[in-house]
Design a protein around this nucleic acid. Structure first.
Lengths: 180, 180
DNA sequence: CGCTTACTTCATAAATTTATGAAGTTAAGA
DNA sequence: TCTTAACTTCATAAATTTATGAAGTAAGCG
């Protein structure tokens, strides 16, 4: 049964089209959540590929965009650690691979953003004074973020435990391949 | 000591300028998190105002934007329940007020977005089949979001408890004023 | 009642973002 | 060493977003 290396089947472009629909739909939701369009599409395509990895040319073909666009998207995605790049020795082709724990990482990253917010709010409270109406109001927000940060920490620990448990059952040791 | 109704002081535009710096800085961080610029600025300005409420004209003056821009931003902010509108009887002026628990609400809203993602991913798994590499990979993501949704639920409950406790101590019964 | 003020809506101008083609860089293979 | 393929960079064109002015609507006040 003729499969190509991007996971689509030769028999029936219907399959390729269905995959594309899923990719675009999922990408649209990532965009809605604040991600730039092209990185979102690339990421969704990788997630939907058989091996979880595609070359620049394959991505360009599936998404119908220029190599330049792929290059930019992939640069962003590796900066934020959502894909890793692997260069196969003996070839000029580079492969881009989705990590097994992208979401965990994304959430961890949010953590540092939270801390920036807290810093700004702290300055606000300091400026207005903790007993001014403004100071108190901003301090309330600050309190929520402090709470959130603390909770996210333990939440992530619980996830790590949960994940480890389920990974044992299935053969998904993808995480051993993390970080170049 | 001469205070104006936007909370800035007549003595020394330095104060107004310092507030503006904080407003713009905080707004920039909201933008970074995915919020549109004008709603972010309006929200930050309200948060930094003495009463936690400003009129359209006051917002326009402080942010140096047209009434039209204020109108658009405020429409968005009330749609997502981050500000409430109150029309003082006997005046055409409308006041826009920040809620006491905006962040809680924002997080609750994320919850429904999470569910949309899950639906899309479920379709992906179904399409590829749960035993295909793609299906398994997407299912892993799905698993994380399921976990997250569950955890967010209990997290919010803990926050509600935490908040209630601290509100008793201080006189911050702002929450009694929620929702028009 | 009509005048006036506060706000909204909508077409459009301005600014920003996004993806491209073309030129440049690096490294494989002959 | 030279050729060529794979990818990157950069200036720019296209598309989208954002804020505006002008015209419109509603509500207080004389």
């Amino acid at each position: 049964m003729g499969e190509r290396r991007d996971g689509s089947r030769v028999d029936g472009g219907d399959e390729a089209e269905a995959v594309s629909r899923f990719v675009e739909r999922f990408a649209a939701q990532l965009v809605q959540a604040g991600m730039a369009r092209m990185p979102a599409r690339v990421f969704a395509a990788l997630l939907s590929s058989e091996r979880g990895a595609l070359t620049s040319a394959e991505l360009g073909e599936q998404l119908r965009v220029s190599p330049a666009a792929v290059s930019g998207a992939v640069r962003y995605l590796s900066q934020v650690d959502m894909v890793s790049r692997e260069r196969e020795p003996g070839s000029r082709r580079e492969r881009y691979r989705v990590q097994g724990d992208q979401w965990y990482d994304v959430l961890l990253k949010r953590d540092s953003i939270l801390r920036n917010w807290q810093e700004t709010m702290r300055e606000g409270v300091e400026h207005f004074g903790p007993d001014s109406p403004q100071g108190r109001r901003i301090n309330d927000s600050l309190e929520f973020f402090r709470f959130l940060e603390k909770e996210l920490g333990s939440l992530m620990q619980r996830w790590a435990a949960h994940r480890a448990e389920h990974l044992e059952d299935q053969g998904l040791s993808d995480s051993s391949r993390r970080r170049p």
